[in-house]
Design a protein around this nucleic acid. Structure first.
Length: 419
DNA sequence: TCAACTTCCACCTTTGAAGCGC
DNA sequence: AGCGCTTCAAAGGTGGAAGTTG
């Protein structure tokens, strides 16, 4: 897992990525904001694993000041425009299922977190424009605390009820299509529906770890790079959308949220009126249904049953949908050993399988971390000395932070939990 | 005592394999 | 043999209920 902060070395420490400026959120006492200041937040984590990386071809512009985050969940929060940290000129991101998010946000979005990991609903689904058709990009998602408070449901609303728990290890979800060309990403919306949230601090699956009863916000990062370990990073863009703020819970507190989830999530159909235990209907099922095992942006996100909500197809005829099987970043992350010739592993790296290049066909099958080399004994995976930004940190503390990172591909940033 | 958490459950969707007919 | 369709089982996602924990 990588904290996106570490993706932007040239920004130094001047940019407090993902966290409000002091005083930005007035919904909780200053004392809470103070308590939220994590000691490692201003430490340039990149230094520990970015040595040797070449400067990005684009000079990263000084980031603009971050807009203020909404002060609280609920209808009173006037959402500022999506903020973006930009060093990718012309690139813009829009939240595809914004209306659904707004419905939840108006009530106060809650996300269930479990030990085994629970998907987000609604999921983040975005469409991107302005990418270089031929260049390759990585799509990343992480979830960051919005403020320094712990929250409590008071029957009618969420209210701060103390300081936030110490920050947990930062993890980032890598979209399994990464890296892929700009044409691939722009062909249709990019969905992060397979992201899972957990409250297990020892989670072995690589899910994003959150504290219960805390307020979080997803962020989406776009990185121009040929590979996850590319030494040439051509810029980054970071986005977040105010309406995607949510409070993590182990059980729904607000019954209106329960109703919305049941109404909008097809997996909860069993709880609807005609199901075993549903009390409310009236919500139209949204086209935010989770997809199947295929994580590609090219399948699983847009339901044919509701084509009206699918974005208009680009003028150019879309390329044939690539198969979702076969080698992929996800496959690598699930079975890294297979890509490194570890013995007795069912998956062997296919020599006919091309590595990602910086041009040509989108490569949902490109294997990430190809620079990682089997370590002593063949069980550990270490980075080649020249390899790239991720690798050295990635292996910190063991063969892999996650022996078999979970579906979709997560990276463990290994930020110090404060215990 | 109680809020928060965990576990289990029934119900649902999705997917892919198997079977069948043309 | 190849193709398309249907059926079915398995996997996995869902919120609710009840039990557990601190």
């Amino acid at each position: 897992m990588y904290h996106p902060r570490e993706l932007y070395p040239s920004l130094g420490t001047s940019y407090r990525l993902g966290h409000p400026q002091p005083g930005a959120d007035t919904s909780f006492p200053p004392a809470l904001a103070e308590g939220y200041r994590y000691p490692d937040l201003d430490t340039p984590k990149l230094d520990c694993f970015l040595s040797g990386i070449e400067a990005a071809p684009h000079t990263l512009a000084a980031p603009p000041p971050l807009p203020l985050l909404p002060s609280a969940l609920g209808p009173e929060a006037a959402p500022p425009p999506p903020e973006a940290l930009h060093s990718l000129p012309g690139v813009s991101l829009s939240l595809e299922n914004q209306e659904l998010w707004k419905e939840f946000s108006a009530v106060g979005t809650e996300m269930i977190i479990t030990k085994a990991g629970r998907r987000m609903f609604p999921a983040c689904r975005v469409s991107v424009t302005g990418l270089d058709q031929e260049a390759r990009y990585l799509f990343l998602l992480d979830v960051v605390p919005v403020d320094g408070a712990r929250y409590r449901w008071q029957g009618q609303r969420w209210e701060p009820s103390g300081k936030a728990e110490p920050r947990l290890p930062d993890r980032v979800y890598i979209h399994p299509d990464s890296p892929a060309t700009g044409a691939h990403w722009m062909r249709q919306p990019v969905s992060f529906h397979r992201v899972k949230l957990t409250n297990s601090t020892l989670d072995p699956h690589g899910h994003l770890i959150l504290h219960s009863m805390h307020k979080y916000q997803p962020r989406i990062h776009l990185v121009r790079a040929a590979q996850l370990c590319s030494q040439h990073w051509g810029g980054v863009a970071s986005f977040r959308f105010p309406e995607t703020t949510f409070i993590s819970v182990t059980a729904y507190q607000n019954p209106r949220i329960t109703q919305l989830k049941i109404a909008a999530n097809p997996f909860a159909k069993g709880f609807r009126e005609n199901g075993r235990n549903c009390t409310v209907l009236g919500y139209k099922e949204h086209d935010d249904t989770p997809g199947g095992p295929c994580d590609s942006t090219l399948c699983g996100d847009i339901r044919e049953s509701n084509p009206e909500q699918a974005p208009a197809p680009p003028e150019a005829a879309p390329a044939p949908v690539p198969p979702c099987s076969g080698p992929s970043a996800e496959a690598y992350l699930l079975h890294p050993a297979a890509f490194h010739g570890a013995p007795n592993h069912p998956l062997a790296r296919n020599p006919s399988f091309p590595e990602a290049s910086d041009s040509g066909r989108p490569a949902p099958y490109s294997a990430a971390f190809l620079e990682l080399q089997p370590g002593p004994g063949g069980s550990a995976y270490q980075a080649a000395p020249s390899a790239a930004p991720f690798a050295p940190h990635f292996i910190q503390g063991g063969p892999f932070p996650l022996p078999y990172p979970g579906p979709g591909g997560y990276l463990d940033m290994g930020s110090k939990p404060m215990y």
